[in-house]
Design a protein around this nucleic acid. Structure first.
Length: 560
RNA sequence: GCGCCGUUAGCUAAGCUGGAUAUAGCGUCGGUCUACGGAACCGAAGGCCAGGGGUUCGAAUCCCUUACGGCGCGCCA
């Protein structure tokens, strides 16, 4: 039922169409006043009457019906109150029928969306700086699928560059196979840091590193074998974290994958007359668009990041025929993507407009930026481990007899990390602190999970939900259902704005509404009709919270 | 210097396609269930929405401008 449209169709204001009036309809600041509101100020000039008088007039000409049961005037607003029992019955019925599909839609049917996220570097640690892209991308991936799109998750591996030559040099000098197998990426990083310390004193090491990287490119047996070993170690380490975070990918085509796909792009640029030579390099001049040039080939003829991204975008279009092509990458690379998209446009690719840089803010530490070279990083796995330990402590203290404590602690600890990373708008920078991530009170993942566990507990004790007729509603009960009813449109707007944080905030709001209701209203001791209604309300809350958390990649423990 | 982004309570944030007393959480102080889970709930204190102009019946929200902070600006990714 579209109440706004319904209201607008019954209102006649001279000089305004029904569509315009519909667009003016807003929500009152609180539902005491009503459920929908029409501000009448803008009509005052043309009608030459006070807003209050206009509202009174409109009210007189508006017959109430089965959907709108009351109309009143307040301070120049015309407020409408819907038939709340009918509305509530409709929402609860829909949730009860759709269950884990509640909120899903088919708006994206037949459309494929490529999402480039996480995109880790081989032999580099997975630190808290990678958390945003990983959980943001994974949440968008689920959101798209939930709304009927076909999402393709792409982990664009950083598996190409001279740093691998450096690592080979370091490994041969100080490394050991068994130590790397045991220590994983941490051991590789130790070698990498040592390399940089030593190379400051012995710059000739860099020549050797370049030579080793060249051997990888040429497919030299020993160098390639080492590189593959590093890759294997990295994927194993990182796979453990992806499992914890419930993150998956459909493709791991990374930088090296495009090695043989860049020549055709360079040729195409040249044929289309877009390439010019400047200071020895081949560039696309973008001065007409107020941007610095996009460098395609270095003066030594080597390709660059931009070349690779042009090849990758083209490959993705040819392979997946995407409807949208997203890059979940920090805002640092703003200019880079603006350049890439512009070059694609200049190449005549009409799909350039479908490419989107999903930019997010930076993570720093309290004492400044992180640095892999200096070894100054916070490993994501350590953060998760500490959150899991903390939740195990809390469980042991509050609920010592709970079976499966370790598993539940995993769910709650990782839930806290994911939820925290997705709780504010993606563009905001954040400063990492253990105090914050280890706080499980208030607007946090554990709070929402706790609310779910509470719902489950009530439902288990309440047994089957019998027939009921919607009783007289308290303000709280109505607000709770109204919020549940907004879930589908919330998901659409989260996707439109590419903001998983909308879902996070929604879940917190819903949990708060339920907890208020829970504290004030008895459920199980009530007479059957009220009891059944409140159980249905609890069930609908649980379904909606669970669906929200599932989209974020957070699991819902039975108890905690 | 130029460009992009940010600035809302002590701290972290929501609200930004203009609408009614600016909304939460953390922290501080004070409270709450013999019915279902206290990782909860309620109350109090705390705001010239960075400053200044403008548009409008109406501005945290739109426009201009200043300040502060972050990021970026040719051969790294």
């Amino acid at each position: 039922m579209d109440y706004k449209k319904h209201i607008a169709s019954k209102l006649k204001v001279e000089g305004f169409t029904a569509e315009e009036i519909e667009s003016f309809i807003a929500l009152p600041p609180n539902s005491d006043l009503g459920d929908y509101a029409l501000p009448c100020f803008r009509f005052a000039k043309t009608m030459r009457k006070s807003p209050v008088a206009i509202a009174e007039e409109l009210k007189a000409s508006f017959p109430v019906d089965e959907y709108i049961e009351d109309v009143n005037v307040a301070a120049g607003y015309l407020n409408f109150r819907v038939n709340r029992k009918g509305f509530v019955a409709g929402v609860l019925r829909e949730v009860a029928e759709k269950r884990e599909k509640y909120g899903a839609s088919s708006e994206g049917e037949g459309k494929t969306v490529c999402i480039d996220y996480s995109s880790i570097n081989i032999a580099k640690p997975f630190h808290i700086g990678h958390l945003s892209t990983t959980v943001l991308g994974a949440a968008l991936y689920r959101l798209y699928n939930f709304l009927g799109y076909k999402a393709v998750g792409i982990n664009h591996l950083g598996d190409y560059g001279t740093q691998f030559g450096k690592l080979i040099v370091a490994y041969r000098a100080w490394g050991d196979r068994a130590a790397v197998e045991a220590g994983g990426v941490r051991e590789l990083m130790r070698l990498y840091v040592k390399y940089h310390d030593e190379a400051e004193l012995h710059p000739e090491m860099d020549d050797e590193a370049r030579a080793q990287f060249k051997k990888i490119e040429e497919g030299d047996g020993e160098a390639t074998e080492l590189f593959n070993f590093f890759k294997e170690i990295t994927m194993k380490d990182v796979g453990r974290i992806y499992d914890k975070l419930n993150v998956t990918f459909d493709s791991y085509a990374g930088e090296s994958f495009y090695n043989d796909k860049m020549d055709p792009i360079v040729n195409e640029l040249r044929e289309k007359g877009l390439l010019t030579t400047s200071e020895g390099a081949e560039i696309v001049d973008l001065s007409d668009y107020d941007m610095p040039p996009c460098i395609i080939l270095r003066s030594d003829g080597a390709s660059l990041y931009a070349t690779r991204d042009l090849a990758a975008a083209t490959y993705r279009k040819n392979t997946y025929n995407f409807h949208k092509n997203l890059y979940v990458v920090a805002y640092q690379q703003n200019l880079h993507f603006r350049q890439i998209f512009k070059v694609l446009e200049l190449m005549g690719k009409d799909w350039a407009k479908d490419c989107v840089h999903v930019a997010y803010g930076m993570v720093s530490m309290e004492d400044g930026a992180m640095s892999t070279r200096k070894g100054k990083v916070v490993f994501l796995e350590d953060v998760i481990t500490r959150c899991v330990e903390k939740s195990l402590e809390i469980i042991t203290e509050k609920n010592p007899d709970l079976p499966d404590k370790e598993k539940i602690a995993e769910q709650v600890g990782t839930g806290a990390v994911i939820f925290g990373a997705l709780s504010s708008n993606k563009i905001k920078d954040m400063v990492f602190s253990y105090d914050k991530v280890l706080n499980f009170d208030g607007e946090t993942g554990p709070y929402v999970q706790y609310t779910c566990a509470r719902c489950k507990s009530v439902l288990n004790k309440g047994g089957d939900i019998g027939e009921y007729a919607v009783p007289e509603l308290s303000q709280q009960e109505y607000d709770l259902v109204a919020h549940i009813g907004k879930f589908p449109e919330l998901l659409s707007s989260a996707l439109e704005k590419l903001e998983p944080s909308f879902v996070t905030r929604y879940a917190v709001d819903l949990a708060q509404l339920y907890n208020k209701f829970y504290f004030d209203c008895k459920i199980l001791g009530e007479e059957d009709n009220v009891k059944n209604f409140r159980l249905a309300l609890t069930d609908a809350t649980l379904v909606t919270l669970s669906n929200s958390l599932a989209l974020l990649g957070i699991s819902v423990p039975e108890r905690m």
